[in-house]
C-alpha cells in the first residue's frame, strides 16, 4: 500500500490537491468582492485534483508489481537547484556573477567537459550574451555595483 502511495504520479496529484486546498482556505478568508472568482477557480481546481488522485490510485494499484527499472541517480535535481539558486542570487549579486557558474554547470552536465570548450562556452554564452544585452543593447539586467557596470 505504501509503495502505491509514494509513486511519483500519485504524489503529484496529491500535491496538487493539497496546494489547491491550502489556497482555497486563503481565498475563503478574503473579502467577498475580490475573492469571488478565485473561490470558483480554486474549487474547480480541488475537485479536479481529487478526481485525478482517485484516478491515479486506481490505475496504479494493479500495476504495483511492475518492477522499477534500476535507475542510476540522475543529477537532474542538481541542475534544478542550480537554476533556482542562480535565480534567487540575481537579486543581490547582479546578473553576471550567478549566471556564469550556472552556464558552466549546464555545459558540464550536458557533457561538454573538455576544458577549452567548457571555458570558452561559459565566457561566450554567459559573459558574451550578458555584455550584449547589458552594455550594447542597453537592456539593463540586475546589477551588483551601484553604477551598473557589472
Amino acid at each position: 500500500m505504501l509503495a502505491t502511495l509514494i509513486h511519483p504520479r500519485v504524489l503529484t496529484a496529491l500535491a496538487l490537491l493539497v496546494a489547491g486546498a491550502g489556497l482555497s482556505i486563503t481565498a475563503w478568508q478574503g473579502p467577498e468582492s475580490a475573492m469571488l472568482v478565485p473561490r470558483i477557480v480554486l474549487t474547480i481546481w480541488c475537485v479536479m485534483a481529487l478526481a485525478i488522485l482517485v484516478g491515479e490510485l486506481i490505475r496504479q494499484a494493479p500495476r504495483q508489481r511492475t518492477a522499477k527499472a534500476p535507475r542510476a541517480r540522475s543529477p537532474l535535481p542538481l541542475l534544478m537547484a542550480a537554476v533556482l539558486i542562480a535565480a534567487v542570487a540575481t537579486a543581490s549579486l547582479g546578473f553576471l556573477i550567478p549566471v556564469l557558474p550556472l552556464v558552466a554547470l549546464t555545459l558540464w552536465l550536458f557533457r561538454i567537459r573538455r576544458p577549452l570548450p567548457l571555458v570558452l562556452g561559459t565566457i561566450v554564452i554567459g559573459g558574451g550574451l550578458w555584455f550584449l544585452f547589458h552594455h550594447v543593447l542597453m537592456i539593463r539586467l540586475p546589477a551588483l555595483l551601484t553604477n551598473g557596470v557589472i
Partner: peptide, 18 residues
C-alpha cells in the same frame, strides 16, 4: 550608434546614471 554604444558605454562606465 548601435555599434558604437557598447564601446563608449564601457569607457564611461564610471559616470553612469540610471
Amino acid at each position: 550608434a548601435l555599434a558604437l554604444i557598447g564601446t563608449t558605454h564601457a569607457a564611461m562606465a564610471a559616470d553612469n546614471l540610471e
